[in-house]
């Protein structure tokens, strides 16, 4: 996990130079925001909310550091906070949604320069529908574990983010992958 070590060393220096904590967090935000945002959109849907939650997670990191506290591993920390915020937001709304075709279309439309090639778009839509169908078959936990594992997190880290055990993570991943493979074969 070289990237993570690099992030942690950045954070370490952020802790020592109090004046520039917000600049360091802004740097971290620029480095990590896409992966956090992607996780939130793919697991919880709702792009605009995912953007808000991503920003909020980094603002909490800033406050956390400014209050003199320490973050040992920043990447899992950010994902855990973002995940918890997303769960709380969903609880507040009393319904659960995940990435669906409408959300994807919304993402697509929000691009500054949508791809003008209609063929490419059709192909991508096709692939996307496959992924959507596959993810829709999974339980929420399986979906979360798979996306986090695809982001490079180890089982222990996933377990901490989702507040489950590492053996639960292994089980969810195995079953999730099996379901996705079965759907692909059909």
């Amino acid at each position: 996990m070289d990237t993570e070590n690099c992030l942690d060393s950045k954070l370490l220096s952020a802790r020592r130079e109090i004046v520039t904590t917000d600049q360091r967090v802004t740097e971290l935000f620029e480095t990590m925001r896409e992966s956090v945002y992607r996780y939130l959109v793919m697991v919880f849907g709702n792009p605009s909310e995912a953007e808000e939650i991503t920003q909020e997670a980094f603002l909490r990191l800033l406050l956390h550091l400014q209050s003199g506290r320490i973050v040992d591993h920043v990447r899992p920390w950010i994902f855990r906070v973002a995940h918890n915020l997303a769960v709380d937001t969903q609880k507040g709304r009393k319904y659960e949604s995940s990435l669906d075709a409408d959300t994807w279309e919304e993402c697509y439309q929000s691009r500054a320069d949508p791809d003008p090639n209609p063929e490419m778009r059709v192909l991508q839509l096709e692939s996307f529908k496959q992924l959507e169908t596959a993810l829709a078959q999974l339980s929420c936990q399986q979906r979360q574990c798979l996306i986090l594992r695809a982001q490079g997190f180890r089982y222990e880290e996933i377990a901490k983010i989702l507040r489950i055990t590492a053996s639960n993570v292994a089980q969810s991943l195995r079953r999730g992958l099996k379901k996705v493979a079965e759907l692909n074969h059909e």
């Binding site: 793919m42 792009p47 991508q124 996307f128 992924l131 992958l177 996705v180 493979a181």
Partner: peptide
């Protein structure tokens, strides 16, 4: 197969990198 599915649907220059605002 899962990684390949993910890659095809969500490429590096994909739309998910660009949030609404």
């Amino acid at each position: 197969s899962f990684v390949s599915l993910l890659d095809r649907a969500v490429t590096q220059e994909d739309d998910l990198q660009f949030p609404p605002r």
